[in-house]
């Protein structure tokens, strides 16, 4: 599948934003008002900012962005529509929670309620994003049971790295729970991805060119319908990643492991270098997530490629 940059940016940026938002919601629900106004305000702005940038970038690949509002209408059948509805719906409790959270001595019950609702909606939105892909019967690599968990765990891992960095920058180093959550989440992200990659590499082909054409047996292509590449080939027949797949996977793993080490260093030795190490960890986790998402698209084969020369998928 063709990896559109706007979609990669959307899923990774909004994923990190929703992960951060969910963690902030849980923090508020468990610990009451933010310990520092500026830390609270900056964290909420980063979370909502990433979500907004992601959502806006997702409209860039539309043929008619001005009609994007229509996408809220078909939530009964379409995961894309559900995602749009939930993404917008999440802003309401998130903004209310944010306002309440940065104020000192807010009503604890209200904060608990809004924080929990925000966290749940944020995670459900990420599930909807993943389901847009996981619900397509035409792309077997996306039907893998790890697709939804991978989207969730990458959202939480990148969100946790962001929260750890924000806490470090605002002088809140050495919060054991936060450091541990970040390291565990990054580890889980790497493990989840390994399971996913092993899963799709070991998938036995399900359909052949003989099945697709209904001619059965050994079928070969001898003539293309057109002289130059068409939309179907450029969108669904993307092949570039097959060559560099293994190297790119190692880059993803390397980035996640390096981010883990940096978080650990910042957590254990912190000091003046803490914030720098923590921000660097966010950058690495971000790069890892972007490359992972690029591979998610680029390595997925579409059934239609059987009509264009692929022998089996």
């Amino acid at each position: 599948m063709h990896p559109a940059y706007s979609v990669i940016l959307f899923t990774t940026a909004s994923g990190a934003g929703y992960g951060l938002l969910a963690l902030l919601g849980l923090t508020g629900a468990n610990h009451g008002s933010a310990s520092d106004f500026w830390f609270g305000a900056a964290s909420m702005l980063v979370a909502l900012g990433l979500i907004t940038v992601g959502l806006l970038s997702s409209t860039f690949h539309l043929g008619h962005p001005e009609r994007a509002w229509r996408a809220f209408s078909q939530w009964r059948s379409s995961w894309l529509s559900r995602e749009g509805v939930l993404a917008v719906a999440t802003y309401v409790p998130a903004c209310l929670f944010g306002l309440l959270w940065v104020m000192p001595d807010s009503n604890e019950i209200l904060l608990k309620l809004l924080g929990t609702v925000t966290a749940i909606l944020a995670m459900v939105t990420v599930v909807c994003t993943a389901m847009i892909y996981a619900s397509l019967p035409t792309i077997r690599a996306w039907r893998h049971w790890m697709v939804v968990p991978v989207y969730l765990i990458f959202s939480i891992a990148t969100g946790a790295a962001l929260l750890f960095a924000l806490a470090s920058v605002f002088g809140r180093t050495g919060i054991p729970a936060l450091g541990i959550i970040t390291i565990v989440a990054l580890t889980l992200a790497a493990v989840a991805k390994l399971i996913y990659w092993a899963g799709i590499d070991n998938m036995k082909p399900m359909y052949t060119m003989g099945d697709a054409t209904g001619l059965g047996g050994d079928v070969r292509q001898w003539e293309l319908p057109h002289t130059s590449e068409n939309y179907i080939q450029s969108e669904m027949g993307f092949r570039v990643a097959r060559k560099h797949g293994q190297k790119l996977r190692m880059i993803v793993g390397g980035c996640l492991v390096a981010a883990m080490v940096l978080v650990w260093l910042a957590f254990a030795f912190g000091g003046g270098a803490g914030p720098v190490l923590a921000v660097l960890a966010v950058v690495l986790a971000g790069v890892g997530a972007v490359v992972e998402r690029w591979l998610f698209f680029a390595q997925a084969k579409h059934v239609v490629s059987l009509f264009y020369g692929e022998q089996s998928v």
Binding site: G63, H64, L80, L136, P137, T138, A212, E235, M236, V304
Partner: peptide, 18 residues
């Protein structure tokens, strides 16, 4: 139609062209 192209991804027969 907003041109999101998702329908073309959902079609196994390549029947939709953007």
């Amino acid at each position: 139609c907003i041109g999101c192209k998702l329908c073309s991804w959902a079609c196994p027969y390549g029947a939709r062209e953007y």
